[in-house]
Nucleic acid binder design. Structure first.
Lengths: 191, 191
DNA sequence: AAATAGCCTTAATATATCTTAAGGGTAAAT
DNA sequence: ATTTACCCTTAAGATATATTAAGGCTATTT
């Protein structure tokens, strides 16, 4: 739990009372590999902070094909924010790619924390701003770069993830088929 | 200026003192068509709230081709958030597509407002959460849908924009060439 | 140890999208 | 009123990426 407090304090210091309140509203949880913490059709109940392990958020299209929207590993937050705030059924899945440990905060608890610790508004504002910047960069890549360039960019920016993920998951994140990623990798290795 | 206050009050009520402070720190400005309010290589100095008109944020690739990252029209915010907060040179341009009126807040002013009106942390947290959700949906479309599906989705979600934008700008936003968009439109009109 | 399932690769063929080139239409600039 | 610049379209040929099918390799599972 200290890890979560430390995480928040990277943004702003907290006093003991604030730390205590956060601790009462957050719950640690172990997740097995392949376990889902969100499924399509259900409301996203939590904001989840990843202590150990790795998750993917994905959608399934009409043909049943999965598309990875996001990966989140250590010290990152994952949630379907739209579903969480609107309390509407999600169209997304969140699945553990590895055995993981997380800390979860439920919606009412998070709202309670926001009211009693206004600093958290600031902290989460910055957290989401950073996620937005990252996503906007990825979007720019997607509309302007070839699949090979996107793959190289992914390797450079997310080395820590790239080595832990099967290529098939990376392909889904890049928006290409595993077969085509395989071709890209061959072309690269042939210099 | 009242428009900005009203905008904030859609999220949370403000008292007179808060309104007054915001007004002293925000500046209205008229922008001509094609005028740039941010250019590559410069630090993004402002958060800009659009009263009237329409802007695009775009990047220029090595070949000199422009890629539209985002459109923002009435009651939306536009800024290169990364450049703004880090005070680092931007890689993006922001240009008025129509003659426009905006209200701008400089970095130091916004930070001053955040400190003196903690509510604004909450308000901007929600604003950016909504932008994030929108962008994540677009990202999902981009990795999972064909150009035709993306175009139809764009028309459905942004009718108000679609009719005001030249197709060449829409094509750039969708990540396709104008020629291919033209073909898509023909295929659609042939049912 | 065998069987199963997931992952990675290869290659042939098909489809989506880009490039280049050209022409016509319309709005802004002179 | 003419010119210029921008925008939209069409089409042929090129390239990027998807689809299908097959085979091999590992790590589980039986």
């Amino acid at each position: 739990m200290q890890r979560l407090i430390d995480h928040f304090q990277q943004y702003l210091p907290l006093n003991d009372e604030e730390k205590e309140l956060i601790i009462t509203r957050a719950r640690p949880r172990k997740i097995r590999r392949r376990q889902m913490i969100l499924q399509e059709g259900f409301v996203c109940k939590h904001y989840s902070f990843v202590l150990e392990g790795c998750f993917r958020m994905f959608a399934v299209d009409q043909k049943g094909v999965e598309h990875n929207v996001e990966f989140v590993a250590e010290n990152g937050w994952i949630s379907d924010i739209g579903s969480f705030h609107a309390q509407k059924p999600s169209q997304l899945f969140i699945e553990a790619i590895e055995a993981s440990e997380i800390i979860q905060i439920e919606q009412q608890d998070l709202y309670h924390l926001y009211i009693n610790i206004p600093k958290l508004d600031r902290i989460f504002k910055v957290i989401i701003e950073n996620k937005f910047i990252e996503l906007q960069n990825r979007m720019l890549q997607n509309i302007s770069a070839t699949a090979q360039q996107r793959y190289l960019h992914f390797l450079a920016q997310y080395q820590h993830l790239a080595t832990r993920l099967p290529n098939t998951q990376i392909a889904s994140y890049l928006g290409i088929t595993p077969e085509f990623l395989s071709k890209i990798r061959k072309d690269l290795s042939d210099h």
